[in-house]
Amino acid sequence: MPSAASRHLLFILAPLVAVFALLPGVYQNHLLLFNFVIFLILAQGVNIIYGFTGYLPFGYVGFFGAGAYGFAIMVMHLQWPAVLAVLVGGVVAVLLGLLLTPLLRLSGAYFAIANLAASLAVLHFVANPALEGITKGPYGVSLTGTFNPTHAYYAAVVVMGLTVAAVVYLKNSAFGLALQAVREDAVSASMAGVNVVKMRVIAWLASALIAGLAGGIYAWYVSVFYPDNVFSGEFSIFAIVFALFGGVATITGPIVGVIILYGIYNLIGFTTPQYFQLIYGLLIMGLVLFLPAGLVSLATRRGWNVP
């Protein structure tokens, strides 16, 4: 087992981090690279909670937005340095995750919809004019003091590295196996000695932390944003679709999904968002109908082992 894990770290994580650390030197569109890294993080976060645990997080963006606002509040009101504020973003997301742990009692569609509702509730809460003194309400925040896209980019690469490392761990550890066991059948898992509730909560909070850190870094990078930007449902949906397209409960699936789908998106370069919406809507439907286990299933069906 340890040898498989080190192989995964060496041949998947290391090249991925190296490529994204070096690319800014040779490729000029840094915003695009940054978005790639953010989606890699979010897709792997979805992988942890959906792929390994079986909860479909339709409101995953709630954690991302909470992280962004955690960052913004620290910077606006307490003038904290950016790196610490990013960590606070992660903590805020974890706290939100804790608040929402009762949702884990719900299964299937109930969880997905309740999670979606929760993210919208957080959006409307943050954007409420009554909270203008704290969050600036719907008027958005401007954080020019910490503006430093270069540092923010590398922070994102670090978080991406840690996230992928976490997935490598899940893929190669008894812990990851136990999570999947809980996903498959909670009663049998408990009779294998697994503390089902604890496992679910850990996975849930880990995926919340990941999205919160990503949100904090996003706020750092863009420095000016509105509630609608950082709570946009597109973050949830893209992350889920990218992860599903590649194949969940694997290390490489979400990575492949982001690189192919987000790559195609940017190559085509739609000027009108509705055409993209049409194409990804059709893509989602095609995916569910024809390739429900993702791209990697094309390989596993042939008996190849895909990490």
Partner: peptide, 8 residues
């Protein structure tokens, strides 16, 4: 009715 972890 056994419910093993089907995908494992």
């Amino acid at each position: 009715v056994p419910k093993p972890f089907l995908s494992l």
